[in-house]
């Protein structure tokens, strides 16, 4: 599935009330484009703290149904948004998708940056949020690869333990229809040939939609690496807040900012 196919599935943005935070010049262009599509726009100015506070107040009052934060450092933005979101909504979850000319579907990855991310109890609620979002977007069964550096469960590599346990829960039918397997090496997750060559049987079959990574360091480095010399499109959104928030990468081109906004809009309904 491509981003273009995703965007064909749902109605447009008419009537959506967008809140914008960010001072960069492309925000004016985005705001204008949104209005032309029939949506309403409100801008939140000032520091990240001020903008996040004003934005969440507006959402709570029902004046804004969708947010875009652009041009802020990723973790600073999440931290400020978490501070201004109702405590029960924490932790916020980020979802980043890439359409690359080297992969036949959108490759998503997600994490809750301010969770400990070291046990089933930390990861599982986030995984459910991510799967639900992708099922909403793609309207199909989601293939989730729990990625590590090996394919075997090893107590010496703690992520393999919780990844293996989550995969087992999935096999027992505890996690819905999503196809979930791990731990898997990165190549096993995205390459049918790699899985075949290594002789590892996996229900993912090298066609993962969603990668769950072992820790925040890995998430940040991989996302940056996939943006490197990037031919293709990318979109970033934040889940778990009272409304979807578009949070494109700092390396995103204007088209990717717009795409992030459209993906967030699809999640609004």
């Amino acid at each position: 599935m491509t981003f273009a196919q995703l965007l064909q599935k749902k109605p447009g943005i008419s009537g959506a009330r967008l809140g914008l935070a960010g001072e960069n010049t492309r925000m004016q262009s985005i705001a204008e484009r949104w209005r032309q599509e029939g949506g309403a726009v409100q801008q939140f100015r000032g520091s990240l703290d001020d903008a996040a506070s004003a934005a969440m107040k507006s959402v709570t009052e029902g004046k804004t149904s969708l947010l875009l934060f652009d041009g802020f450092p990723f973790l600073d933005a999440i931290r400020q948004l978490e501070e201004h979101v109702a405590p029960e909504a924490k932790p916020l979850v980020v979802l980043q998708g890439f359409e690359l000319d080297t992969y036949d579907r959108i490759l998503w990855t997600g994490i809750a940056p301010f969770s400990k991310w070291d046990s089933i109890s930390e990861v599982l609620p986030v995984l459910r949020i991510l799967i639900h979002a992708l099922e909403t977007l793609q309207n199909s069964v989601v293939r989730v690869a729990l990625v590590s550096c090996v394919e075997t469960i090893s107590p010496g590599i703690p992520s393999t333990v919780w990844e293996g346990a989550i995969a087992q829960m999935s096999r027992r039918g505890q996690l819905g229809e999503a196809i979930i397997d791990g731990p898997l090496g990165f190549d096993m997750a995205i390459s049918p040939e790699a899985a075949r060559d290594k002789g590892v049987e996996t229900s993912i079959e090298g066609r993962a939609d969603l990668l769950i990574l072992p820790n925040l360091n890995t998430y940040c480095s991989l996302v940056d690496a996939l943006h490197l010399s990037g031919h293709g499109a990318s979109a970033g959104v934040v889940l778990g807040a009272p409304c979807p928030i578009a949070l494109p990468s700092r390396f995103a081109a204007e088209d990717d900012v717009w795409l992030s906004l459209q993906i967030a809009n699809l999640l609004r309904t």
């Binding site: 590590s148 990165f186 890995t218 690496a225």
Partner: peptide, 20 residues
């Protein structure tokens, strides 16, 4: 220099498999 084996292994394989 990565923080651990997973970050390095996965990022390197990302560059190999998806960035050629």
């Amino acid at each position: 220099v990565s923080n651990g084996i997973e970050e390095c292994n996965i990022t390197a394989k990302g560059l190999i498999n998806l960035r050629g």
